[in-house]
Amino acid sequence: MPDYLAGIDIGSTMTKVVIMDNGIISSVMGPTGPEQRRLANKVMEEALRRVNLSFKEITYLVATGYGRINVPFADKQITEITCHAKGAAHFFAEARTIIDIGGQDSKAIKIQDGRPIDFVMNDKCAAGTGRYLEVTADALGIPIEKMGPTALGAKNPAQISNICTVFAEQEVVARLAEGVPLDDLVAGILESLASRISRMVNRLKVEKELVITGGGAKNVGLVTALSEKLGCTARVPPEPLLTGAVGAALLGKDMVGKALKQGLPLEKKERSLREISLY
């Protein structure tokens, strides 16, 4: 029987599950939200159902993401930094710098041979995160997934001067009322976000290959703006939201392999596929 390895990445906005054997055999993404975080087990159940596996058949399960603590059905918790490094290196063996743009934070990771050697995080301000996109997309009345393609048509990106998400929302509405074309305005928003992220990333001194992961990587306009600002073309995994979960599953695989090789017992927990307790 093959080993089935699972990774679950409980982010602030989305919960992602990946099940792997020699490659990804199942993946599911579901919203996290304030209430759904409790129900991360449902996302796991769905991933298992799709490949007709029972929970017991999972050899090892690693949880990551901000919600990784207290996951009762994980064998081990590993931070997003290590999991994204592993996941990005899986998709791009030459990856040296990773930018993960999540719903509530963003981070940059410097890696070597697939392991993190340095990192910086922005967890203080929404202005450098996916939340900025959500708020401004809402203010403009366009779906967030349309922002990237819309920005690509811009001729004269607007200047968004406010560094606060709340004030930027007001500014965007005002600029729209002034008659600034939508594509220029969206391009300006993405420029502004890219500028904030690149300031953080530059602390690490970017080296090629640059890989962008997380929800922000699905925005082609943001990826383009970041590539320009950082002076190198960014690579994006096939499903950037899954990078952390893939890394988690692969780290689990490494642990299983190492235990087997060294003849040592595998570090495992008594696990059960039930709701996460928030208390």
Partner: peptide, 22 residues
């Protein structure tokens, strides 16, 4: 933020561990 600070510390400890192994 205690949660964010400790998330950073966790990631740093993992980096220390992987450096040690390397």
């Amino acid at each position: 933020s205690e949660v964010d600070t400790r998330a950073r510390i966790d990631a740093f400890i993992e980096t220390l561990e992987s450096t040690k192994k390397s």
